[in-house]
Nucleic acid binder design. Sequence first.
DNA 1: ATAATAAACGTAAATTTAACGCTTATAGTT
DNA 2: AACTATAAGCGTTAAATTTACGTTTATTAT
Lengths: 231, 231
Amino acid sequence: MTYQHPTMWVSIDCLVFGYDVSEENLKLLLFQRKVDPFAGQWSLIGGFVNENEDLSAGAQRVLKTFTGLDGVFLEQLSTFGKASRDPGGRVVSVLYWSLIKLDSIQKEVVNSHGAGWFDLDQLPELVMDHLDMTHLGIEQLQRNATTTPIGFELLPEKFTLPQLLRLYEGIYGKSIDDRNFRKKILATNVLVRLDEKDKSGSKKGAYKYMFDENKYNELKQRGYHLDFSIR
Amino acid sequence: MTYQHPTMWVSIDCLVFGYDVSEENLKLLLFQRKVDPFAGQWSLIGGFVNENEDLSAGAQRVLKTFTGLDGVFLEQLSTFGKASRDPGGRVVSVLYWSLIKLDSIQKEVVNSHGAGWFDLDQLPELVMDHLDMTHLGIEQLQRNATTTPIGFELLPEKFTLPQLLRLYEGIYGKSIDDRNFRKKILATNVLVRLDEKDKSGSKKGAYKYMFDENKYNELKQRGYHLDFSIR
DNA sequence: ATAATAAACGTAAATTTAACGCTTATAGTT
DNA sequence: AACTATAAGCGTTAAATTTACGTTTATTAT
């Protein structure tokens, strides 16, 4: 012992938001806790930090374990440390959040872990402070959506403007004028229009776009800010 | 032992920014570490979290210990948890940041703890990842200054517009057009002009203002955003 | 009286936002 | 072959905001 102070468990909890393009709604990944206290109840995915494991590595491990995914958006959000938050002992939990593109393959992987995707407005009761964590994540998602091109993390590589619009409407929980949205998002120059159309949503078909990371990096210094007005 | 996992030390580090109205510059509170490793070197103020102490209570305790202050702006910022960050053992550090009004009394209290105020552009070498922490805090300060009325935490209760302007210039590290600044800040309606003048800076004297928290709370829902252009 | 100076006030052009109407492309129907 | 319905895409204009910079005011020191 080098320091004369109490030690504690340090855990990772990870808010995983997924967006289903076809269903057009935001979902949260939850799983049924395996250990007591609260075994069997719904909670965010999580785990304890290992001896020689960096916090960020722990978060990556947790995400990989439950989703099979690597290299997706994953950032630290906040740390929860009320002394009484976990009846099982003094556990300080570092909350991360992640955004992933939801498709059928992803849904399969998740099912095999006793986990499931829940619509944000139909969440089951959550363990401990996990509902607070969720609210914090939604706020962060809204904040970041205007400030960073975070929306693209939730869409497939190729997407249409109507899809992007509906995603933003989902994030903000309000409707956005499509004509102004179009102008604003295209004016940023971070989108590249492809010569392909997605005809699943209409007879005319909507052009597919891709996010141009290089353009975004150029823009970043000058500041990137998208605000969408209510309608 | 309820959980079969390793435990760790959990520490609090606290970035304390202070603004000296007369000197017109931003300072950071540092102290000389008392324990090994790194005893004698400059570090942020900090301490270990106690057995039954909430994280936020720990942060308040640390701040109170070093500054004698209570009830000032204090928020969690981020958590640092590289396995190798502290050669003295596995320590996960939760970083808080605080803003205080610097005056001569405050400077005295601080001196008595072997601590000191350093100009942001003249920091000594810092222990471990404390320089990264500082950079994170400066970014956060800049971000929050446009989004929340955080600036007022750094000024005395009664302040003048030129003082507020110079504070913002300090935070952003750039000059701001005084006429536009005035219009923008007054348009928010969160300032109340008093019938007093501060004549220390000019012959004419500048009106003193106070921050109106009620007006701010009204405004908050509709969104509060201040952007200042370069000149 | 006059000069010097920080503080305070004002204005006009340029840019951005908000609101909303119109056109286009295509599949399915007649 | 023409017609219809509909999502997608384009365009315009008034209002609001931002930016840039000129002017006036109050006071002390000369």
